[in-house]
């Protein structure tokens, strides 16, 4: 199965200039934990995730989040978020993000989900325009129903 067959044609995105406070709002409303970032021409230039925002607010603590040694003070996190709330998405997004093409195979996409530990990956066409997003849960759902296995000869 190709990516375009199981991708979600939800083109929800933010612009490079969108302030962080608005990025958070769109994430919350749309239920997406990472969002494609588009430039002036509407082409995909990055991806911004919840992790990127938290890392931006607490850079020195972020690396320690994997241990239970230090839990950031939430007031401090709140203040830090306020400081970056008007900064543009372009400042904290992942440039050169992992992107899938509509013709990519499901196996390739699955490997990206696993190796890069991503929950969703934007799908862009040859011209660089966003055409959808592939979600790990959709692939998982298909597999658990035997959908993809049925396609394999």
């Amino acid at each position: 199965m190709k990516a375009h067959e199981f991708m979600r044609k939800d083109l929800t995105s933010v612009d490079a200039e969108t302030p962080i406070s608005e990025v958070i709002y769109v994430m919350e409303q749309s239920g997406l934990s990472s969002l494609p970032v588009l430039d002036d021409e509407g082409t995909l230039v990055g991806v911004i995730s919840e992790r990127d925002i938290i890392r931006a607010a607490l850079p020195s603590y972020f690396d320690m989040l994997h241990s239970t040694a230090i839990l950031p003070n939430l007031n401090q996190l709140g203040r830090s978020l306020e400081r970056i709330s008007q900064r543009p998405a372009s400042e904290f997004m992942a440039r050169d993000p992992v992107v899938v093409r509509p013709s990519d195979e499901d196996l390739q996409v699955a490997q990206l989900f696993i190796r890069r530990r991503l929950k969703q990956i934007p799908v862009a066409n040859e011209a660089g325009y966003l055409v959808g997003v592939v979600r790990r849960i959709d692939l998982l759902n298909q597999l658990s129903r035997g959908g993809i296995l049925r396609d394999r000869r």
Partner: peptide, 16 residues
Amino acid sequence: VLRGILSEGVSANFVW
């Protein structure tokens, strides 16, 4: 509504 739109195969680019 979004779910319904996507399930019909329509691309959606809405502002929340």
